[in-house]
Computed example of a mutant assay.
Amino acid sequence: MSPDKKPQNMKPLTAAAKLGIYLPATPEEFRNSPVTRAQLEELRTNPPQWLLDLRADGPFPRDVVARKLGISNSGLGRAGVEDALTNAEIDALLAAPPEWLVKERENFAEVRKEAERVKAKDAERRAATNRPAKNW
């Protein structure tokens, strides 16, 4: 028989990233102690009120803010947005988008369009040569 396995722990920052929440906005007991995989799964399946509130109102981490605004993380950096934003702040930006947000959304749309074009071109090339796609 194998000895009892020690539960795998992760740093609170890693757990917060997996939950899609902003670590500094979490309760102190979450920020200051490691989280086991079992605890993480429990938070996912049976979230406490603080987690529900964070997911609903924020503040949100950078990647979530970028996704809600329809821009890239780099676009947030170029705009000088360094702080996490709440739902109300995001809604205000979307209701009256500043010039930087309009530009970044256009840029993001162009980048996505170009990525789709390249993907389609590669698919055509593979189909013409009858080779399977590379799995990187």
Results as ranks from 00 to 15, higher is better:
S33Q: 12
A66R: 09
A25P: 01
V64E: 12
G80D: 11
S72F: 13
T26S: 07
A38Y: 08
E29T: 15
R78K: 10
L76H: 14
T26N: 00
A66G: 09
G58R: 00
R37Y: 13
A84G: 11
R62E: 15
G58M: 01
E42R: 01
V81R: 13
T26Y: 03
W100D: 00
R55D: 04
L51D: 05
N73K: 15
R105K: 14
V81H: 11
D63A: 08
E82Q: 12
A25T: 02
E29G: 07
N87E: 13
S33T: 09
G58E: 01
R67C: 03
A66Q: 13
P98C: 06
P59R: 02
G75Q: 06
A56S: 13
A38W: 06
E41V: 05
D57Q: 13
L93K: 02
D91G: 04
L93W: 03
G80F: 04
Q49R: 12
T45A: 06
P97V: 07
E29P: 04
L69C: 08
L54H: 00
N46R: 11
F30Q: 11
V102P: 09
L69S: 11
N73D: 09
P47H: 06
R55I: 00
S33C: 01
R105N: 09
V102I: 15
L85D: 07
E99Y: 05
A96F: 12
T86S: 14
R37D: 10
R44T: 03
R31L: 08
P97H: 03
P48A: 12
S33H: 15
L69I: 08
T36H: 05
A38I: 01
R78A: 08
E104R: 02
P59Y: 03
P98I: 09
N73G: 14
L52A: 11
A79K: 00
G70P: 04
R67E: 15
V35R: 03
P98G: 11
E42L: 04
P97K: 07
D63H: 12
L93F: 11
P98S: 11
V81E: 10
R44Y: 02
E42N: 09
E28A: 13
A92K: 14
P27L: 01
G70E: 01
A96C: 04
E82H: 10
L52I: 14
N46L: 08
E89A: 15
